[in-house]
Design a protein around this nucleic acid. Structure first.
Lengths: 252, 252
DNA sequence: AAGTGGTCTAGACCACGTT
DNA sequence: ACGTGGTCTAGACCACTTA
């Protein structure tokens, strides 16, 4: 439970002309202190008033930086006692909204996607999940996803055509769909609800995944929402039970 | 996209003598405005400066209340435009750390737990997941969980004895374990990591769950951490694939 | 008594979108 | 030009823990 003097932590380098907010610059500096191993778990972290003086900013700014790190589990605070370094998380930060590609990238695995179908369709059941009207036009994309050339999942994604009417084939198929929507259409993605169940593989799924029928698979359904709370995407996935497991981080 | 005049929203009732922080009182008032249906989705929400004057508090306080509601998905803000009411979430707020009992309570289902085993054990594999030492004492509890008198899950929970050395049988078995730890031991629960996979039921599991062997089941493993980042609980569960599905809320 | 995090004030300037 | 949310300041008092 020792404390590390601030003057051993190098010179602060805040750029007050930068468009990046001060609290964010400070947050990243503090994060680097933590992840560089200068602190051990349960070590005393510098008090807010010390940091205030060190960075020459107001306490509110410090509190925002420290507060976000605490929210993300890097630090914990105890009233009257102080602020301490938490034990590092074991798993890759998850339970966040990431695409299959991003997820795999974090684990350094070679992924591929083979497109089985791409086009505009109408599907009353899916349309009703995404909007009020049952004959909304949908962009449908069916893919087989592989890791190291071995098929692991079957995925059917439906995006409301109204939110991205001229979405190019390329951008949807390659790269991150979410990133495309955010940069090209200015959409902000909010959150998603996902259900996970275990069932036996159907015949046509088994063929595409290269497994025997009735083998256990993970069946997922996901509804993705914009920050306004409007649904814009529905995804149905089937993962091989023997090749894939999900990790979810639960908070508070 | 209409706006509702503040003077139609009733008198504010902040109690400045209350130990409940102002931002929290305001947050709850705003939340009641939203959930009472006075606003429709995408309605303009009162601007921060208006709320400031209405509640007679500073803007920082308003921002904290509004900010938390935005974080939780009730409101969304757009710079230069204003603050708006989001569409209400469909599913029960989940993806949070809840116990089986709490989870089911939210769905108004009758649950029961039949205890198969309860006692102190040593288990090197589990101990190493929870702590450095492999001969830590563990409190082990094995239960069959039922909904409407039908068995749906098999659950083995291990709690480090060192965090709750004199934990009474009753409190662990009935009621919420988490609540007991928080109120009686002053522990603060931080987060959990859960893995979910699909596999075939083993023979002994099939018997206890009343299903045929090799039927698909959901196999879960969960590590629960205190706010310090120290693991204190490990749970291994097996859910019937035909009777249970998981819902997870993913953020941002 | 001194130090800590938790809350709150009354201002200020900025970037952005609408009028 | 004006209103919006986003950031920031320089203070203040409180509740709590430790010495």
């Amino acid at each position: 439970m020792m404390s590390i003097p601030l003057d051993q932590l190098g010179v602060q380098s805040l750029d007050r002309a930068s468009p990046v907010p001060l609290y964010h610059q400070i947050k990243q500096t503090l994060q680097s202190w933590i992840s560089s191993g200068r602190f051990s778990p349960q070590d005393r972290f510098p008090a807010e008033r010390e940091l205030e003086e060190f960075f020459k900013v107001s306490r509110v700014t410090i509190r925002r930086a420290v507060g976000e790190l605490a929210e993300e589990g890097y630090l914990y605070r105890e009233q009257g006692k102080g602020c301490f370094v938490a034990r590092p998380r074991m798993e890759y930060e998850l339970g966040r909204l990431t695409s299959f590609t991003e997820d795999m990238k974090g684990r350094a695995l070679r992924t591929k996607a083979h497109v089985l179908h791409f086009g505009v369709v109408r599907d009353p059941d899916v349309a009703l999940r995404l909007a009020e009207s049952e004959d909304e036009e949908l962009i449908k994309l069916v893919r087989v996803r592989s890791i190291d050339d071995e098929p692991v999942a079957l995925q059917s994604a439906y995006v409301l055509r109204s939110v991205a009417h001229d979405l190019a084939d390329r951008s949807l198929i390659e790269g991150s769909l979410y990133k495309t929507l955010e940069t090209h259409y200015g959409l902000r993605i909010g959150y998603a609800e996902q259900t996970i169940e275990s069932r036996a593989a159907a015949d046509h799924e088994a063929v595409l995944l290269g497994i025997r029928s009735h083998t256990p698979v993970l069946a997922l359904e996901r509804l993705t929402y914009l920050h306004t709370g409007e649904a814009f995407e529905f995804v149905r996935s089937t993962y091989r039970g023997d090749k894939y497991r999900f990790t979810v981080a639960l908070r508070r």
